[in-house]
Design a protein around this nucleic acid. Structure first.
Length: 504
RNA sequence: GGCCCAUUCGUCUAUCGGUUAGGACGCCAGAUUUUCAUUCUGGAAAGAGGAGUUCGACUCUCCUAUGGGCUGCCA
């Protein structure tokens, strides 16, 4: 690591919702910055005006906020290197492109998109699988390298549409050291003359990215593996400008849990888990569910994401954001793509739910379930059922009989356990309770043990029917805890209800 | 097709030439529990294949296979 100040950026384009792969890239950038006391920057790359999606930028910012991945510089945040939205930096890029033209590192090209399509089509028909605008083909195209100088000049003065293409050198080896993959090298013969500046006056990603990273003093570029093939070209651009290139780290991709391929938008509803951090609605009104709305804690979500492609080298798996900031190193990021595991994700959430204080859970519960129940009572519910829940919303279903008197009893669930003497035993046990003034769980349990002892019956013979009449269910937390929570009056009332259902 | 990257249990991964190849999720079995859940214990489960280098390779090199990415005036 050089002693240069660490400045990293996450640079999404607002073409739609950020999916979890993007969130992970943002997270790694953030953690890297924190680890080295650096700066984490958000930059919006909206150079493609045709793909702009309204709301996408807000979605990105809100997603990161929910995850507590807080940028130190960015749109709406400020910083000394703004603006942080490329369309607002539009005027900056042209002169840089011109500079390359002047230095012979780039050239004007006048081929129309239609002409290019035609050339590609023709090449395909001749059995060439891909045609590239490169060192050899450029000599048969319409550009400043082939056209007479005066014609080029005339076209430019005329206002004819043009692009500026990078002039790729012939047969040169471009090498760079990736922080994750080590040395990567490519021969320029395999690279093409990429468009740097578009006919609409906007730069392409490649130019804008290099110019912004340089002018924003970015020290490390941590981005997805899909950028690896163009990294050598970016290196070359830095050389053309005479700038020092940042260090690169190309992250492995997130893969579909089944089959193969990069995780994509539609995989979520197909496989039954969210692919997006928060809900997203398309312009057509289609909804994509987010982790936030599913009920995941952001801490659990972030913890899970951090472990998709990184590990601390120890057996610890539960990390707070702060702990991740300490433990994270780029060296421990793996090289191969990871398949997303929905089960493991749920497990993380379950762990976090369990480690959340009861009153905190109660507070969150109140937000999703209107109730008059006081907070301390809610907290007790949480304590009783949290071990059988994964999400806060599970507490509502798992503890339903703690909120409301059962409205329907289904005798068939207990009929097998219901013997001839059950009703009589239950009635006697009810009498014991009716005479009892102390309803503390431990006390009731003691009473109960004495009761079954005296009757000479098994615990289950009474306890299960007891559960049934009070909760209309066969499963749940300790009956003595449940009884204490409900209180004497409610318990006796439910005895009546439950017993009635049996008689029918 | 071309170029680049990758390859350890089903999944996420540890191992930085010498290990009974470790952990976690999931799965199975047992114990605890009135029940379900929890918890605990145990179990099945892996180095893609082939050549080298080496006293010794999961680890280094090469080839093959497989997977992935890129191949736009998209990012």
């Amino acid at each position: 690591m050089s002693d240069k100040e660490v400045r990293v950026r996450f640079a999404p384009s607002p073409t739609g919702p950020l999916h979890i792969g993007g969130v992970r890239t943002a997270l790694y950038n953030y953690l890297f910055a924190k680890k080295y006391n650096g700066t984490f920057i958000i930059r919006i790359e909206d150079t493609d005006q045709t793909r702009f999606v309204p709301g996408a930028q807000d979605y990105i910012m809100e997603s990161l906020k929910w995850c507590h991945i807080n940028p130190t510089e960015g749109p709406g945040i400020g910083g000394d290197y703004g603006p942080y939205i490329q369309s607002e930096r539009k005027e900056m890029y042209g002169p840089y492109a011109e500079e390359l033209v002047t230095n012979g590192k780039a050239y004007y090209a006048f081929d129309t998109p239609e002409e290019l399509d035609a050339v590609r089509e023709a090449a395909k028909e001749m059995g060439m699988h891909n045609w590239q605008y490169n060192t050899v083909t450029r000599m048969s195209m319409k550009n400043a390298l082939t056209l007479p100088a005066d014609e080029v000049k005339r076209k430019l003065e005329n206002g004819d549409p043009y692009v500026i293409r990078m002039k790729m050198p012939r047969n040169e080896e471009v090498r760079f050291e990736d922080m994750i993959r080590g040395w990567v090298s490519v021969n320029t013969n395999n690279l093409d003359d990429k468009v740097l500046f578009k006919s609409d006056g906007m730069p392409t990603y490649h130019l804008a990215n290099i110019v912004d990273d340089h002018t924003m003093k970015i020290s490390h570029v941590i981005r997805g593996e899909e950028w690896l093939p163009s990294a050598p070209m970016h290196i070359l651009l830095y050389q053309y400008f005479g700038w020092e290139a940042p260090q690169f780290a190309h992250l492995p991709l997130l893969l579909k849990p089944d089959g193969n391929g990069k995780l994509s938008k539609r995989d979520g509803d197909r496989l039954g888990f969210p692919v997006f951090p928060i809900d997203w609605y398309t312009a057509e009104g289609e909804k994509f569910t987010g982790y936030r709305e599913e009920g995941y804690f952001p801490e659990a979500f972030v913890n899970m994401l951090a472990f998709l492609g990184w590990n601390p080298g120890t057996h610890q798996e539960l990390f707070t954001l702060k702990e991740l900031e300490e433990a994270f190193t780029i060296e421990k990021v793996g090289k191969s793509g990871s398949k997303f595991d929905a089960d493991k994700t749920r497990w993380f959430q379950q762990q976090y739910l369990r480690n959340t204080a009861d009153t905190e859970l109660a507070t969150q519960l109140k937000e999703i379930m209107p109730t008059d129940m006081p907070l301390d009572r809610l907290a007790t519910v949480c304590r009783l059922v949290k071990e059988r829940a994964t999400f806060v919303k599970d507490i509502i279903t798992e503890g339903s009989f703690l909120f409301n008197t059962p409205d329907t009893y289904d005798f068939s669930i207990i009929s097998k356990k219901w013997k001839d003497n059950t009703a009589a035993l239950l009635t006697e046990w009810k009498e014991v309770l009716a005479a009892e003034s102390n309803f503390e769980a431990a006390h009731l349990e003691g009473k109960f043990k004495v009761f079954v002892e005296e009757k000479g019956v098994g615990i289950g013979q009474v306890l299960l029917p007891y559960r049934y009449v009070l909760t209309a269910s066969m499963t749940g937390p300790s009956m003595f805890e449940v009884s204490e929570f409900l209180g004497k009056e409610e318990c006796l009332k439910r005895f009546e209800l439950g017993m009635k259902s049996v008689q029918q």
